[in-house]
Design a protein around this nucleic acid. Sequence first.
DNA 1: TAAAATTATCACATAATTATCACATTAACG
DNA 2: CGTTAATGTGATAATTATGTGATAATTTTA
Lengths: 222, 222
Amino acid sequence: MYKILVADDEKNIREVLREYAEFEGHEVKEAVDGMQAVEMAKNEDFDIIILDVMMPKLDGFSACKEIRKTKNTPVLMLSARGEEYDKLFGFEIGADDYVVKPFSPKEVLARVNAIIKRNQPAAAASEIVKFEGLEINFTARSVTIDGEKANLTPKEYDLLFYLVRNKNIALTRDKLLSEVWGYDFFGDDRTIDTHIKMLRNNLGEYRKFIVTLRGMGYKFEV
Amino acid sequence: MYKILVADDEKNIREVLREYAEFEGHEVKEAVDGMQAVEMAKNEDFDIIILDVMMPKLDGFSACKEIRKTKNTPVLMLSARGEEYDKLFGFEIGADDYVVKPFSPKEVLARVNAIIKRNQPAAAASEIVKFEGLEINFTARSVTIDGEKANLTPKEYDLLFYLVRNKNIALTRDKLLSEVWGYDFFGDDRTIDTHIKMLRNNLGEYRKFIVTLRGMGYKFEV
DNA sequence: TAAAATTATCACATAATTATCACATTAACG
DNA sequence: CGTTAATGTGATAATTATGTGATAATTTTA
């Protein structure tokens, strides 16, 4: 889900883009002129801003320049057909892409997706592993169970992530304590057991991946 | 050493990748279309799979999806320049990275290494030995018998692991007691016999590897 | 600073493992 | 072949480890 700002003085343009974007699950805000667009862009973090070139109060190029002074939000410019010069100028001032009216909203959305992905290499490289319905996103530090977001505590994340990164490896309590709790933790071994218990409760049916190694510790087995 | 599957219908692509990968000490298998890639991926455990997007029979995306149904093997996609949407789609269906043709084999290998490192930091270090149908994984602290997971008790693991680590060496009861039970164990010699009995029961036909040395002790003989 | 959330510890319940014993079986040796 | 010593084995009591709910201590958040 992306947060998109659409700035255009034509109501029907804003609406057709909103309709398509919302259909794809994105959140859309609208601005009716360049000034308003700059204002909103400075106060909120958008994933992308769509700017019409011809707008009242402040044109698209100036708005883009202004926004770029404070933020690095990707910008897609819209303009009337044939204004080739505009296009070039658009790229010069740092627009990420350029679409000529009349456009197909589908194409605009495709470009929006392309720009955002291009600008967030982290999202593409995000480190995710999946074991059946258990999805673990190391980068986002999130876990989903059958698509549902799990709500783990920090220690539970740390413990699960360590187990998963060392999947299929027998881990002693000592090892877990020193790696997850830190070498300077001098508490009780059994603390681990309690956290394993809570983690298992949170993992539902996928608790099965955490196996007890009697007399030793635990491991994440897949 | 990684096990790599390269799936591409162009022979020269497969060969250049094979050459580089083998130079780095990896093992390479080839598939000439998507169907074959899926088949191979399901039957063997690769460390990474390199899929061309455009392949006969089954395209790279579909192959990736299909593989992901049963395995979590990392996938790197290859495609022709400019297919920007392909790239996005590739990430969407769970590819781990994406390289555009024409590529430098060096870059591909660098990415392969990066992906594998972040996916399995330790899997490559797994210490496993196999005697006929008896597989012993020291790292995972697990034993399988004809592919079936054995369920051993802690002492049974310790005893078996010690025997196997000292295979073909005669071990007296005293030695076993002090090494497996610990120097501070002052119990009965015969305790060992009982544990040998249970271990044998658990090993099924592979009990044959544990031989009795009358008047002495036991050894694991292969 | 108070309230909420998280974390560590404890105590008890439950389950699994272990050591020992008694008796059965086997091998070695004259 | 019979005797003897050693090993195999089933049963079981004793021990140990883990699961878990409750709660105290701590940290985070509002």
